[in-house]
């Protein structure tokens, strides 16, 4: 009886967590593209106006970012100005939760068929590298190791701390600006 009552609450909590994480990640993607040369280099290979989406199937939470040129991303929230170019789609809310709560690495989630790619796979591979780089910056090493296939050896603490601080500051600023608007 109790389990039956708790289940919808747990599901709602997962939904809220995934929505929140998408909002943080979208803003953080924009932020990391403003502070990290490696990410900018990766993003520069994407066409200008390229729209990337991550979403939960069928009509769940989503994040959309656009490459606005020069290796910079712009976070569009959960609505795209036009059809997206590449979409990484989690098959179920639970799969998104597993990845976004760092219980399952993104690469493992792909290997486990938890999500599928709609669009040019080579761009999806590139965006996955960007996401890995972002996670390596903003997560404590012990958690980042659970999120990415391999924690970058050349990412040392001072660089990580400075970049993470810049990214979190930009994310917070963006949240405040959104709230005010």
């Amino acid at each position: 009886m109790l389990a039956k009552r708790i289940q919808p609450m747990a599901s709602q909590a997962k939904r809220l967590y995934v929505e929140l994480m998408f909002q943080v990640m979208g803003r953080a993607l924009q932020a990391v593209s403003e502070v990290d040369g490696e990410v900018q280099k990766e993003a520069q290979a994407l066409p200008e106006g390229f729209l990337f989406e991550m979403m939960v199937m069928p009509e769940g939470a989503k994040l959309i970012v656009e490459h606005i040129g020069g290796g910079r991303f712009h976070y569009h929230g959960d609505s795209a100005p036009r059809a997206v170019d590449v979409s990484i789609q989690f098959k179920h809310l639970t799969h998104a939760f597993l990845v976004l709560s760092f219980q399952e690495k993104t690469s493992i989630a792909f290997a486990h068929d938890r999500m599928l790619v709609d669009g040019d796979v080579s761009y999806a591979v590139r965006m996955t590298r960007v996401l890995n780089r972002l996670e390596s910056f903003i997560l404590p090493k012990i958690i980042a190791k659970r999120a990415v296939k391999e924690y970058p050896e050349n990412l040392h603490l001072p660089e990580k701390l400075i970049s993470a601080a810049q990214i979190y500051l930009k994310v917070a600023t963006h949240f405040i600006q959104t709230a005010r608007a």
Binding site: S107, F110, A111, V121, S122, V125, K149, E150
Partner: peptide
């Protein structure tokens, strides 16, 4: 090669 889809499934980064 880095942008090839199969690289996602390579066991080592």
């Amino acid at each position: 090669a880095l942008d090839d889809g199969s690289i996602m499934f390579n066991p080592k980064e």
